[in-house]
Nucleic acid binder design. Structure first.
Length: 593
RNA sequence: GGUCCGUUAGCUCAACUGGAUAGAGCGCCUGCCUUCUAAGCAGGGGGUUUCAGGUUCGAGUCCUGAACGGAUCACCA
């Protein structure tokens, strides 16, 4: 039952029957009634006064009277200024509850037969993952789950940036200072080990620049002439030519990094369906450049470089291929886009990439459109803001980053401390307790990053850390655990949860059912808007509503049996929404905490 | 300098895409554990929505301009 469309249907009838001015139900929208007024749904009259030919109050009364008389689900109405507030019959809430309770996977849509590719994480192999990476990973993972629930077939991909000058920097310093050490010999996680050499490079490089400068060279020149950078460039050339020793070193070091990443991904609980490696894709796209030239979409400049003119879209001219015929980032991404579509013919392809690449993707999508790729319409850049520290931007080279592994570890420890302080780990096996800490720590962290609108930047203050109270993951997890206790008790008492008829609802109950009825719509919105934040905020509201209900309305001490059963059913439905909602944020919920 | 994004309570964020007196959480203050888990609930205080104009029945939301912050505009990725 969709209460909202029943109401808009009735209002639509009112317009054609009373005012002789038909308006389709789909063109009418309702909003939730503000708390201070009676009712649950509100219809705003102002936009329709020209059809009603009456003042707002009178128009509202007329429509309110009509729908109350024609629809059995509407109990009554009131008009305040130009707002028509509609009150709903308890029986409608009851039917709603029964319906939700009856389905197994409430919120899950049937397959829509469409495919979507979600690319995220996309790390460089010269340093470990940090807090910024966690945001794309959480966003991408969550979007994948939301879209799956919304009926898509989803393919999660990770495009690994495993080649280029930055990798050579780590390789070079390792060669010079590494003494053949390895993750095994040092006990250092592979990605961390490589990251150390990346930092080392920057340190030594800066020394060289300083020396050159003191010798009278200007800064720009010194940056170009420093021996280390020249060596790194030399190494990149060797790699591109397939020099055996260089490639062997590269392979060895990348393996170390991947072993490190695997551990981090596993802690997070994320998996990918398909990995792409830039070492395998960086030469792609040249055929598309040729195609574009043939079609007259691209043009050549005198020196032989290839460009696309996007001034008609208010953008600039953009380089597609260098004068020496080598690729740039855009060339590669064009090719990769085509490759992805060949491997996995998608209807939509989402790139979860930071907002510093807004321009790049704008251009990429326009190019694919100009090339006449029909799938270009389905390309989408899920652009997210940076995660900044109070001290400013995180910089791997300068070591001012919040490391992903360290941060998660701290979250686990914080969870343990809170749990111990509250004495809630009593009776738990050490193994169970550890699982709980991870669930809570990760829940707090994921929720913290996902509850904010993706496009906004996030300020992370390591000193304030991440809360476990209020609008947080643990709050929702706690609510779930509370309900679980109720369900357990109901089972021991052998209370059936068959919902009977003729229930008079407490306001808290009606509010909660109303909230639960919004779940499918929220999933749809979160999918269409590419915003897990919408879902996170919704789940928080559900948990808050449940806690209000829990506090005010007794369950087991209620005398009326039918109410006891209904309240347990309502609790169970809430638990299911919380669990599957959190699952879409990739957060697990505990049975006890 | 061009383009794009952002600016809402002391702090962190919402505001259903133009609707009612702008809402939550944190922190602060006051109550509530002898009834289902107090990581909770109830209440209080806290706002010229950066500023100046405009559009209309109605603007945090739309248009113009300004200020501040960020990103980007590489034959880097």
């Amino acid at each position: 039952m969709d209460i909202e469309s029943i109401i808009t249907g009735e209002i639509s009838k009112a317009f054609s029957e009373v005012f002789s001015h038909p308006i389709g139900a789909e063109d009418l929208s309702l909003q939730p009634t503000r708390r201070e007024f009676e009712g649950k749904y509100t219809f705003v009259i102002f936009p329709y006064l020209k059809y009603t030919q009456k003042n707002p109050e009178e128009s509202g009364r007329t429509i309110g009277e009509f729908v109350t008389q024609h629809s059995p689900i509407i109990k009554g109405y009131n008009v305040v200024k130009g707002f028509l507030n509609l009150e709903i019959e308890d029986d409608a809430w009851l039917q709603m509850l029964k319906e939700i309770y009856a389905v197994d996977n409430y919120g899950q849509s049937a397959s829509n037969g469409k495919n979507v590719m979600v690319e995220f994480s996309s790390p460089n192999t010269n340093k470990p993952l940090h807090l910024g990476h966690l945001r794309t990973i959480f966003l991408g993972d969550s979007m994948s789950r939301i879209l799956t629930t919304a009926g898509y077939e989803v393919n999660k991909t990770n495009l690994v940036n495993d080649r280029g000058i930055h990798i050579c920097k780590s390789m070079l310093t390792y060669q010079k200072y590494g003494n053949g050490e390895s993750p095994d010999s040092t006990g250092i996680k592979g990605d961390k080990l490589i990251g150390n050499y990346y930092v080392k490079f920057d340190k030594e490089y800066k020394k060289e620049i300083a020396e050159l400068e003191s010798g009278g060279m200007n800064t720009d020149e010194a940056k170009k002439q420093a021996p280390l950078i020249l060596e790194a460039q030399e190494m990149l050339k060797k790699w591109e030519m397939g020099d055996e020793a260089t490639v062997a070193l590269w392979e060895m070091m990348n393996e170390w990094v991947y072993a490190g990443f695997d551990i981090t991904y596993s802690t997070i609980g994320v998996t990918f369906d398909k990995f792409y490696y830039e070492s395998e894709t960086y030469l792609l796209g040249k055929n598309l450049v040729d195609e574009g030239l043939e079609k007259g979409i691209f043009f050549k400049k005198g020196n032989g470089s290839v460009w696309v003119d996007l001034t008609e879209y208010g953008l600039d001219e953009k380089l597609i291929l260098r004068a020496d015929g080598t690729s740039v980032y855009m060339t590669q991404d064009m090719g990769t886009c085509e490759l992805k579509h060949k491997n996995f013919p998608f209807d939509k392809s989402v790139y979860v990439v930071g907002n510093e690449q807004d321009y790049h993707f704008q251009v990429l999508f326009l190019i694919m459109k100009k090339l006449g790729r029909p799938y270009a319409e389905g390309l989408h850049h899920l652009s997210y803001g940076m995660v900044d520290l109070p001290t400013g931007k995180m910089k791997s080279r300068e070591g001012t980053v919040v490391d992903a592994d360290d941060l998660m570890q701290e979250m686990f420890e914080t969870a343990e401390r809170h749990t111990t302080d509250l004495g809630k780990n009593e009776g738990l096996e050490p193994k169970e307790a550890n699982e709980l800490y991870k669930m809570l720590g990760l829940g707090a962290l994921k929720y913290f990053l996902l509850r904010v609108d993706p496009k906004k930047r996030i300020l992370f203050d390591p000193i304030k850390s991440i809360d476990f109270h209020g609008d947080t993951g643990p709050f929702i997890q706690y609510t779930y655990a509370r309900i679980s206790a109720i369900i357990r008790r109901a089972k021991t008492l052998h209370i059936s949860t068959e919902v009977e008829d003729d229930i008079v609802f407490h306001k808290r109950e009606a509010d909660l059912i109303y909230q639960l009825s919004k779940f499918p719509e929220i999933i749809k919105d979160a999918g269409e808007d590419y915003s897990p934040a919408l879902l996170a905020q919704y789940i928080f509201d559900v948990a808050k509503d449940y806690n209000g209900f829990y506090q005010e309305v007794p369950i087991f001490s209620e005398d009326v049996k039918a109410l006891v059963k209904m309240r347990i059913a309502l609790s169970e439905v809430t638990a299911r929404v919380l669990k599957s909602g959190m699952a879409m944020l990739s957060i697990q919920v505990p049975e006890r905490m």
